[in-house]
Simulated assay, not measured.
Amino acid sequence: MPTGVAIRDVRDHLFDAAERVLLRNGPSALTSRAVTTEADCAKGVLHRHFADFDAFLAELVLDRIAGVDARAAALRASAGTGAVADNLTRALIDMFGPVAVAIVSLVTSRDDLRTRLRQARPTGLPILTDAATAIASYLTAERALGRIAADADVDTLAPTLIGAVHMLFADRQGTPPEADTVQKVVTTVIAGVER
């Protein structure tokens, strides 16, 4: 982009560029130069809108977490409809899309980014913790409806599901698992509590 040309929605433009670099080349390739090159803008554009590169990355992660929050609301609204295992399977596949998996890798690979994120979100690993909270909320709703056992420990089931399913998706370069594979994990984890 030529110098002096205004960029609409600079923040989103830079976030989208960072996402493309992250998906294509992984977290180690994500630098301010790589982002601005991908965004086709001067490096100063990024630094004009963010205090430093870690501030930019923290805002990127927090922006992408908003997508998990929207999925959480949809999942909770599905309580009482369809099969519990089907609802969980669909939600987990949706939550562990390529961007979410790449962001988890980014957060785990950058100490300064994790430190910065702790200021906004003091506990857990962003995306994974948010997904576990969403699953726990859904399972709590299903427990209240009697579709899972009254004594089901949703605060253990949720991170168990997140951890097990994340392992299926964690290979950034591999082929995502089939829905049947995710469904098998879900049904195994909730087998003792589903009614």
Rank of each mutant, 00 (worst) to 15 (best):
I135L: 15
A134P: 01
S137P: 01
L128M: 10
I148P: 13
A120V: 08
R116M: 06
A150Q: 14
R116Y: 00
P122A: 09
L117Y: 04
D130T: 10
E142D: 09
R121W: 08
S137F: 00
A150W: 07
I148Y: 06
Q119H: 15
A131L: 05
D130V: 02
T129P: 00
Y138L: 06
D130Q: 01
A149L: 09
Q119V: 03
A150H: 08
A149S: 15
A149R: 10
D130S: 12
A120Y: 07
R143S: 10
T129I: 03
I127T: 01
Q119T: 10
P126G: 05
S137W: 05
R147S: 05
L125T: 06
T133F: 05
S137I: 02
A136V: 09
R147W: 11
T129S: 13
R118A: 14
L145T: 01
G124Y: 04
R116E: 07
A141P: 04
T129V: 11
D130C: 06
T123N: 14
D151V: 12
R147E: 08
A149G: 12
E142C: 14
T140F: 08
A150E: 13
R121M: 06
A120K: 15
A132S: 15
R143K: 15
T133N: 11
A134Q: 10
A150I: 06
P126W: 08
Y138A: 07
I135V: 15
Y138T: 09
G124A: 06
R147L: 11
A149P: 10
R121S: 03
G146D: 12
L139W: 05
A136F: 01
A134R: 10
Y138P: 00
L139Y: 08
T123I: 12
A150D: 15
E142F: 14
R143T: 15
L145H: 13
L145M: 10
R147Y: 07
R147G: 11
T133P: 00
L128E: 00
A136N: 13
A141Q: 06
E142T: 13
A132H: 03
P126I: 07
D130I: 00
I148R: 11
S137Q: 09
A150K: 13
G124C: 07
R121I: 06
A120W: 02
L125N: 01
P122F: 04
L139Q: 02
G146E: 12
R118M: 04
T140H: 10
S137R: 03
A120N: 03
R147K: 11
I148H: 07
I135A: 06
L128N: 03
A132V: 00
L117S: 00
P126E: 08
E142G: 11
A149D: 13
T123S: 08
R121Q: 04
D130L: 05
A131G: 10
I148L: 10
T140D: 14
L125K: 02
Y138M: 00
L125C: 05
D130K: 00
P126H: 09
P122I: 04
I135E: 03
A131T: 15
R121H: 12
G124V: 00
A149T: 13
